[in-house]
Design a protein around this nucleic acid. Structure first.
Length: 637
RNA sequence: GGACCCAUAGUUCAGUUUGGAUAGAAUGGCUGCCUGCGGAGUAGUUGGUCGAGGGUUCAAAUCCCUCUGGGCCCGCCA
């Protein structure tokens, strides 16, 4: 949008002025100044020329600006119409002010008439995003939620910018954690149904069985032997054990999906680890690794009898154990190969469920009934695996192996993020952690975590209370839906607004806040826009932006005109938080505008019409941004 | 022991990629603003040796080095 053109013209001006002094290939930057008094863009080139020209920055800046003025006076039509003024500042900067009349009218037609349909950055590039992938032995806690929210937000942003996105959820249904559950059901005789019928099955397994079984391992080591034998049976495909395990894991998975769908995540495909292990896929991968001499069988030393990979950075890693079972990392290799296209997709697929957004969720299947028309899932040109930073080393090894297998492996990226910790206050409320500790690691195994549904439920109650207080007329289903959407927005926003690589210190009380820099704040600004538009009775928005001249109006216009830049930055840097920050700033600017200037009550009809059009533009951009981060815009709240 | 990550206001965090003008929000505390288009808002105030030290530079929260503190990973676990 227009801000980019403005910046490009500022650059032209500098380039032109430099050429007049016969200076070429000088690098400089044009950035936004810290204060708006200075202008809308600033260039630092004068600082960089002090040695060459033996003059002060201010003298140089003045000379350059003079050159431009001189030229501009003679050739008004040539360039610079997005620029309203250029000035040398005493500090040495060259400051540009934008022509907001022009930019205002351009963005108003971009947004109001073209409906933001210009975001084709992907050009149908095929992208895979794998996220969630929670072991099917427990319910989700807030740590998992961060994964889901990051993954789903990536999906939304990529999709909106015209990438062909396939979302995968990998189900590790044959690992130790499932074996733990089997120990509980088969040896410790936990009933198949929880005593309390209201309790979700995933919570029953995670909170009661999984934690209890792990406690008992300490007291009764024979249970660990039992787990080991169950694990082996799982891997080798023992029919009875597998059918039972599959029943349990599917039930847990189904309940997990309820939570994921609740916060508006969605998937295209479930891949089951058991299917990969028992298919030819693993066999083929194993053969390929041997054939390409990427792995070797150890004939001496500690790892005798194992197939190992020599990583340049990580040393020797065992891929296949001496008892011929595959390690955790090994099981990920065929999946990665499938994603990037070095191995063929041999699976059959079936529709697993219909989702909240009316799309099909598919799943791999072991039977041969897969003769159905279905989407092509693999491979992708770019595949993203969302897993927390603790798995970085393993992901690096997988990448290293991929690169050895083929030079033209499509791009495989580990999308890393920091884990979620409990704040000391929240930990204390659970009876964990000393007074000195700043935060506490969650552990599903030890039962130290905040359950995802619990957070959502608590936030929902709070939102409901607040909504009733403010809007007594909202009742029944409307009230429930509104409260739920507010709760989701609070949680999603709090998990996406921070830097990816930093850990989040999750605090139960803070995260219930519906004020300040929060999801509901954004929704509130949007709802205000809606009410204004509704009350204006405007059918169309042809307000002339030339009538807007106050500082705050120009700040909004400027911010709106940067929308496409933010989207591009988000895609280039793969930083979903940029969208959240942009939306927050837009909401803040709008609230100030709303506070300071009359809109519907403005007497001058031209100004009023222009302001209403501005509100509509803000509303539309806010709406797109909210949807990108998975927050539902509400007309009322 | 080796690898990686983090450190900014009482608290939670932006800003570091690409060095630049008086380091910004939110929250907490205090004080204002609805006979105004929705107060989930807004205005003000309080609060900072940008972990420490050195270096590069006209200029460092930002780049480099050293150190300190915290985290995380390094298994024939997943």
């Amino acid at each position: 949008m227009s801000f980019k053109k403005f910046a490009a013209q500022a650059n032209e001006v500098i380039k032109f002025a430099l050429e007049e002094f016969d200076i070429k290939n000088k690098s400089y930057t044009i950035t936004e100044p810290p204060k708006e008094d200075f202008g809308d863009l600033s260039c630092n080139v004068a600082f960089l020329l002090t040695k060459e020209l033996q003059k002060s920055p201010y003298q140089i800046a003045s000379l350059l600006v003079e050159q431009y003025r001189h030229y501009y006076n003679q050739n008004k039509q040539e360039f610079g119409y997005y620029i309203s003024s250029v000035a040398a500042h005493e500090s040495g900067y060259i400051n540009f002010k934008a022509n907001f009349d022009l930019i205002g009218n351009e963005i108003s037609s971009d947004i109001l008439e073209n409906n933001l349909s210009f975001l084709d950055l992907g050009k149908h590039k095929k992208v895979i995003v794998e996220h969630t992938s929670v072991n099917p032995n427990k319910s989700l806690h807030v740590g998992h939620l961060r994964n889901v929210v990051i993954g789903d937000t990536l999906y939304r942003i990529l999709k909106k910018t015209n990438h062909d996105v396939t979302v995968l959820n990998y189900v590790d249904d044959s690992g130790v954690q499932v074996a733990d559950l089997l120990v509980g059901f088969l040896y410790l005789k936990f009933p198949i149904q929880p005593a309390d019928k209201n309790i979700k099955f995933d919570k029953y397994c995670g909170n009661e069985i999984y934690v209890k079984v792990n406690e008992l391992y300490e007291k009764d080591p024979t249970l660990i032997e039992k787990r080991k034998s169950l694990l082996k049976k799982l891997e080798l495909g023992d029919p009875e054990i597998n059918s039972f395990a599959s029943k349990i894991t599917l039930k847990v998975l189904t309940d997990q999906l309820v939570t994921c769908w609740r916060i508006k995540a969605r998937y295209d495909l479930l891949n089951f680890e058991s299917h990969i292990i028992r298919s030819d896929l693993w066999k083929k991968t194993f053969e390929k690794l041997q054939h390409e001499k990427i792995i070797a069988k150890e004939t001496e030393g500690n790892n005798i009898g194992c197939w190992t990979f020599d990583s340049s950075d990580e040393g020797t890693k065992i891929i296949v154990r001496s008892d011929n079972t595959a390690t955790y990392i090994a099981k990920d290799i065929p999946y990665a190969l499938l994603k990037v296209g070095t191995i063929e997709d041999i699976f059959n697929y079936r529709i697993f469920a219909k989702q909240w957004d009316d799309t099909n969720l598919w799943s791999s299947t072991t039977d041969n009934s897969g003769n159905v028309t279905r989407p092509i899932f693999f491979p992708a040109e770019y595949s993203i695996t969302v897993i927390d930073s603790r798995q970085t080393r393993l992901q690096n090894i997988i990448k290293e192996i991929l690169n050895k297998l083929t030079q033209k492996a499509n791009e495989y990226r580990h999308f890393s993020y920091g884990p979620v910790l409990l704040s000391s206050r929240t930990a204390k409320s659970l009876g964990i952690g000393g007074a000195s500790e700043k935060s506490v690691q969650m552990s599903g195994r030890k039962g130290i975590y905040i359950d995802a549904d619990f957070v959502l439920d608590t936030c929902y109650s709070k939102a409901k209370e607040e909504t009733m207080k403010r809007n007594p007329e909202i009742t029944g289903e409307d009230l429930e839906k509104t409260s739920e959407e507010i709760a989701i927005s609070a949680i999603r926003y709090s998990l996406i607004k921070n830097d990816l690589e930093k850990e989040i210190k999750f605090d139960m009380i803070d995260s219930l806040s519906l004020e300040g820099n929060s999801g509901p704040y954004l929704q509130y600004a949007y709802a205000r826009c809606c009410r204004l538009i509704e009350k204006s009775n405007a059918k169309s928005f042809y307000g002339d932006m030339n009538y807007l001249s106050s500082v705050i109006e120009n700040r909004i216009i400027k911010h709106l005109s940067k929308f496409t830049i933010i989207i591009e930055d988000t895609i280039n840097a793969m930083e979903p938080k940029l969208i959240a920050h942009y939306a927050y700033e837009l909401a803040t600017l709008f609230n100030i505008f709303y506070e300071k200037l009359p809109i519907l009550k403005e007497i001058d009809t031209n100004i009023s019409a222009a302001r209403i059009s501005l509100v509509e533009a803000v509303r539309l951009v806010l709406k797109v941004n909210l949807c990108l981060v998975g927050i539902t815009p509400l007309d009322r709240m």
